[in-house]
Computed example of a mutant assay.
Amino acid sequence: MAYILPNLSPTLLQPKDKPSAIVPPLPSVSTSTASPQTKLEPPPPRGVAQVNRTPAARDNKQDERNDFYVNLGFAVRTLREDLPLIFTKDLNYDIYRDDITFRDPLNTFTGIEKYKLIFWALRFHGRILFREISLDVLRIWQPSEYMILIRWNLKGVPRVPWEAKGEFQGTSRYKLDRNGKIYEHKVDNLAFNFPQTLRPAVSVLDLVAACPASPNPTFLWGPVEDSSSSWVEFYRAVKETLDREELVIPQDCLATCS
């Protein structure tokens, strides 16, 4: 019996009513790399921090676009209302920039004060040289987002008895900036329709009739045979008014003289 007992397992000698103590295993230290679940992520690049400002920048850009379209609509409505009345009423200058440039086939003028003077001279000399003078808007359209084109017809009855009623057409091109303000007004594509004694050698009416409708119409500007016509005098009077730098016209006269 004594020979057998030493060979018995120690667990067999423990009482059955006393459970053996469970020793938790010690944490093992491994030199291998951490698992993907515990791997530390690198710090985000600096550009990621700008993501929070993107919605605000987008909102500002959208606000600018909204302001542009509001000002564009206001400019179109104002031009449609103002141009037929340029010989009886002053313009609404809120749609123009202070550095607006006016161009015609022969001249260029810059500045809102010069621009106001142009339309004052049109009203003043138009009443002196013509018994009746008026402008009709024939068409308004946009060949591009930042441009407004207006096709108009100017007609008048000179005060001198030897001249009959005359008229001519032209195109006004208005260029807008990104805020919807007009910074350039260019007059071109002039087509004359004077009485027979003042017509060019080639009838401009025939040229106009032969030209198809186009966003960029082109017409010839022929010489006028009688240089003393009321239309030529009208243009010269307006031009001389603008060339006189020393001429100072009161602001109330700019608004009321017609």
Results as ranks from 00 to 15, higher is better:
residue 237 A to C: 15
residue 203 S to K: 03
residue 193 N to P: 07
residue 114 K to M: 09
residue 231 W to P: 14
residue 183 Y to H: 13
residue 224 V to K: 03
residue 185 H to I: 04
residue 221 W to D: 14
residue 120 W to F: 08
residue 124 F to G: 01
residue 129 L to I: 15
residue 111 G to P: 10
residue 215 P to T: 10
residue 214 S to R: 05
residue 182 I to E: 00
residue 178 R to M: 02
residue 200 P to W: 01
residue 110 T to P: 06
residue 145 E to Y: 02
residue 133 I to F: 02
residue 236 R to N: 15
residue 157 V to Y: 02
residue 148 I to C: 03
residue 108 T to N: 02
residue 143 P to M: 08
residue 101 T to G: 02
residue 145 E to A: 10
residue 147 M to S: 11
residue 164 A to G: 10
residue 166 G to W: 15
residue 154 L to V: 15
residue 192 F to N: 00
residue 105 P to E: 02
residue 165 K to W: 10
residue 188 D to K: 01
residue 110 T to I: 05
residue 113 E to K: 04
residue 181 K to H: 10
residue 176 L to R: 07
residue 212 P to K: 07
residue 116 K to C: 03
residue 120 W to I: 00
residue 199 R to A: 14
residue 154 L to Y: 14
residue 97 R to G: 10
residue 172 S to T: 14
residue 184 E to T: 13
residue 217 P to E: 03
residue 233 E to V: 09
residue 104 D to A: 00
residue 232 V to R: 12
residue 202 V to H: 03
residue 174 Y to M: 10
residue 159 R to G: 02
residue 131 R to H: 06
residue 101 T to C: 09
residue 198 L to F: 02
residue 121 A to D: 07
residue 184 E to V: 10
residue 237 A to I: 13
residue 102 F to E: 01
residue 163 E to R: 04
residue 183 Y to S: 04
residue 205 L to A: 08
residue 177 D to M: 01
residue 127 R to L: 01
residue 180 G to Y: 02
residue 167 E to M: 14
residue 144 S to H: 04
residue 229 S to K: 08
residue 126 G to Y: 02
residue 138 L to C: 14
residue 166 G to E: 13
residue 136 D to F: 12
residue 191 A to E: 05
residue 103 R to V: 11
residue 177 D to C: 05
residue 106 L to Q: 04
residue 155 K to F: 08
residue 105 P to N: 08
residue 228 S to M: 11
residue 178 R to W: 12
residue 128 I to Q: 10
residue 155 K to M: 09
residue 218 T to H: 11
residue 213 A to K: 15
residue 99 D to A: 01
residue 115 Y to G: 00
residue 200 P to R: 00
residue 154 L to F: 12
residue 133 I to K: 07
residue 208 V to E: 11
residue 125 H to R: 09
residue 193 N to I: 08
residue 207 L to G: 12
residue 226 D to K: 05
residue 218 T to I: 15
residue 148 I to P: 08
residue 113 E to R: 04
residue 160 V to D: 00
residue 153 N to R: 14
residue 191 A to F: 06
residue 187 V to Q: 06
residue 211 C to I: 11
residue 179 N to V: 07
residue 123 R to Y: 07
residue 114 K to R: 06
residue 229 S to R: 03
residue 194 F to E: 08
residue 158 P to W: 06
residue 174 Y to Q: 12
residue 214 S to C: 11
residue 197 T to I: 08
residue 157 V to M: 05
residue 182 I to H: 04
residue 218 T to Q: 13
residue 226 D to I: 06
residue 139 R to W: 04
residue 166 G to I: 09
residue 157 V to N: 01
residue 233 E to H: 13
residue 184 E to F: 05
residue 132 E to G: 00
residue 180 G to W: 03
residue 147 M to L: 09
residue 166 G to C: 09
residue 196 Q to V: 15
residue 146 Y to E: 09
residue 227 S to H: 13
residue 159 R to D: 01
residue 228 S to N: 13
residue 187 V to M: 06
residue 198 L to Y: 04
residue 192 F to K: 05
residue 150 I to Y: 00
residue 121 A to P: 11
residue 222 G to Q: 13
residue 221 W to H: 11
residue 205 L to N: 12
residue 157 V to T: 11
residue 188 D to S: 13
residue 190 L to G: 02
residue 154 L to C: 07
residue 126 G to K: 03
residue 204 V to M: 07
residue 153 N to Q: 08
residue 203 S to E: 07
residue 182 I to Y: 04
residue 173 R to C: 04
residue 232 V to E: 01
residue 117 L to M: 10
residue 159 R to F: 01
